[in-house]
Design a binder for these strands. Structure first.
Length: 479
RNA sequence: GGUCCCUUCGUCUAUCGGUUAGGACACGAGAUUUUCAAUCUUGGAAGACGGGUUCGACUCCCGUAGGGACCGCCA
């Protein structure tokens, strides 16, 4: 465990995604951890786009990542840094290594390499590159072949990664081979670029997925070769699918925007994500301030967690209920096009619909686990006459029911005011007078007014619908 | 195959040698109720296995089994 002394350097964390695709759930969580730790310590959270591989990077992916972080509310300090913009510096460091005899030019061809790899495999040996160029006189280099620059990794001893999450992990140096740091076209490779950038940016804590654990060892060697301080590493476990296998698209290795479009709240997603691999006693719901206050690196678990959509939904439902109605409507409208609901018009809600949504929001909220479910719940209000009556509702609308509806229609028409309480009173009086349980009358009303057997409280529905629409819908079904 | 890591209810986790192994999600039952939810009460549900160490192990050590990550001129 590493303790932070008062005199320690201010914390600098970073999130360094490669822009090969969207921001996925695992990336979002490491970003969250880095962000939380920086905010917790009053440190700095930087963003760096690892775009050194020009063949694989796309500007759209960069935008998707930035948008995802913004939506989650993970604000970074300063401007995002493009790693590609720093190639000159990476190359410079590679040349320093070369000059210091800590790197060398290697002219092994791809064919030679794969032959070595196959041979090792056939002999059931672990494969490490043993380049003959490591100690060969550079003057004997073949003409016209560009070659790569390899880091001259120590052959003996061990490299230790003192990891905040994984503990003290020891790698035998003989297992770590001479990695390429400059491609034959002269461009730098990830493991070099990360070290140079993290050092130059003053990064103190590197929190990332365990899939980088062996990279941490190789990077440690580069730090040491350059005589630089090694940052504090924390390699967090990966997120798996519900079946325990690697998270794939099938499981929900979706872009963060997919979660937005499913109607999850960023606060809920953060709350769910932070609990995957991290805990604070029995606490489950963390308001953002508490999350920042309580987040620490020592309570991170080491085992992989499985994605549980049921729990995500429950957390989301909790946050939906906590959000004030007007704010919730604003959130819904902000993501409305992505929600893919057939209920709302393309252009968004009309003023009238907005008023109706707001009026019914308190009834819609406890019934919804996602924003989309809120909008779908309002479908019965926005529907145009004549209403589609589903099977269960149709069953409720038998001859008796239609008779009640006709009487009720006329009673409602004569009502002095139009508000839920008065409507309910009136129906209760009617039911009692006829020796009926309230449900016997309320259910047919619901069926006639919403076309469904399930809806928000029916008197509130009437209130929101207004007298004219309510009476018209009832008239449609009256016997 | 090699290296490294992991293993408590179905899932996320608490426990930092002594607890009736706790909480949350999910699931079952009940209450409430105009439906469905929400809410409240309540039930079942776990230390992978085998050895040690110890007065005492979920907790420490070793092994086994299972799972995962990495093994690129990708990041």
């Amino acid at each position: 465990m590493i303790t932070t002394s008062p005199s320690a350097k201010p914390v600098v964390t970073r999130f360094a995604p490669s822009p090969t695709g969207y921001l996925h759930i695992g990336g979002a969580r490491t970003a969250l951890f880095n962000w939380l730790y920086a905010r917790h310590t009053g440190g700095t959270f930087l963003l760096r786009i690892e775009d050194t591989d020009r063949n694989r990077h796309t500007p759209e992916a960069v935008d998707a990542i930035l948008d995802g972080l913004k939506w989650l509310g993970l604000d970074w300090d300063g401007e995002p840094l493009s790693q590609f913009s720093r190639v000159a510096r990476h190359v410079e460091v590679a040349h320093q290594l070369l000059a210091a005899g800590k790197a060398y030019r290697c002219y092994l061809s791809q064919d030679e390499l794969s032959a070595m790899r196959e041979k090792a495999e056939a002999e059931k040996r672990s494969f490490t590159v043993q380049s003959p160029w490591r100690d060969r006189n550079p003057a004997t280099a073949p003409a016209g072949v560009p070659g790569v620059v390899r880091f001259k990794a120590p052959r003996d001893g061990e490299t230790i990664v003192d990891d905040l999450v994984q503990g003290r992990v020891v790698f035998q140096n003989k297992e770590l081979d001479d990695l390429v740091i400059l491609r034959s076209d002269g461009t730098p490779i990830y493991n070099l670029a990360v070290v140079v950038d993290d050092h130059d940016m003053g990064v103190t804590h590197v929190l990332r997925g365990v899939d980088h654990l062996t990279n941490a060892a190789r990077q440690t060697q580069i730090y040491q070769a350059m005589g630089w301080d090694v940052p504090i590493f924390g390699h967090v476990p990966l997120i798996h699918g519900a079946d325990g296998a690697k998270l794939s698209k099938r499981h929900g290795a979706l872009g963060i925007e997919a979660y937005r479009d499913m109607g999850y709240l960023p606060s809920a997603l953060k709350n769910y994500l932070v609990r995957l691999g991290w805990s604070h006693g029995d606490d489950e719901i963390f308001p953002l301030e508490k999350m920042i206050e309580w987040f620490d690196l020592t309570s991170l678990g080491k085992s992989a967690a499985r994605m549980d959509f049921k729990k995500l939904a429950d957390t989301n439902a909790h946050y939906i209920r906590e959000t004030p109605n007007a704010d919730l409507l604003a959130r819904i409208e902000a993501v409305l096009p992505g929600l893919g609901s057939s209920v709302a018009p393309i252009g968004g809600f009309s003023t009238a619909q907005r008023t109706q949504m707001l009026a019914l929001m308190s009834d819609l909220k406890p019934r919804a686990q996602t924003l989309k479910e809120i909008v779908d719940g309002a479908a019965c209000i926005f529907a145009e006459r004549p209403l589609k009556i589903d099977e269960k509702a149709a069953k409720l609308l038998d001859a008796d029911a239609k008779g009640h509806i006709k009487v009720l229609h006329d009673r409602f028409a004569a009502l002095a005011t139009w508000e839920a309480a008065a409507l309910e009173d009136d129906v209760r009086v009617y039911a009692e007078a006829n020796g009926l349980k309230l449900g016997k009358v309320a259910q047919p009303l619901r069926a006639a007014l919403t076309g469904s057997s399930v809806s928000p409280p029916v008197f509130n529905v009437m209130s929101v619908l207004g007298r004219a629409e309510t009476l018209a819908r009832l008239a449609d079904q009256a016997g």
